[in-house]
Amino acid sequence: MDRRELADFLRSRRERIAPADVGLPAGPRRRTPGLRREEAAQLAFISTEYYTRLEQARAPHPSREVLAGLARALRLSDVERDHLHHLAGVPPGPLPGPSREVRQSILDLLHRLPQAAAFVMSATFEVIAWNDLAAALTEDFSALSRRDRNLVRRVFLGPHPKQGRLYGLSDVDAFARSSAQQLRATAARYPDNREVSELVDELLCGSAEFSRLWASHDVCAEPTLCKTLHHPLVGPVTVNCDVLDIADRDQRVVIYTATPGSPSEEALRLLSVIGTQRMDVAC
Rank of each mutant, 00 (worst) to 15 (best):
L133Y: 07
F210R: 09
L133V: 14
A188R: 04
S178T: 09
V127H: 01
N150Q: 12
V155I: 15
D171V: 11
S142E: 05
L144T: 01
S170T: 08
E209H: 05
A117L: 08
Y167I: 09
V127L: 02
L199D: 01
L137P: 14
D140L: 00
A129W: 02
L204G: 07
G164D: 07
V172E: 04
H160M: 01
S145C: 04
T124C: 07
R149M: 07
T138D: 03
L204H: 09
H160R: 08
L183C: 10
F210D: 08
E139F: 02
R189P: 10
A136C: 15
N150A: 12
A180Q: 07
T124W: 08
V155Y: 00
P159C: 11
A134S: 15
S142A: 15
L144P: 00
E126Y: 00
N150K: 11
T124S: 08
D173R: 13
L144N: 04
D132Y: 05
P191V: 14
T186M: 07
S197F: 11
S197R: 14
A187K: 02
A176H: 02
Y167F: 15
G168P: 10
V196G: 09
W130G: 04
M121Y: 02
F141E: 03
A174R: 01
L183D: 11
R177I: 02
S179C: 08
F119V: 11
R147H: 06
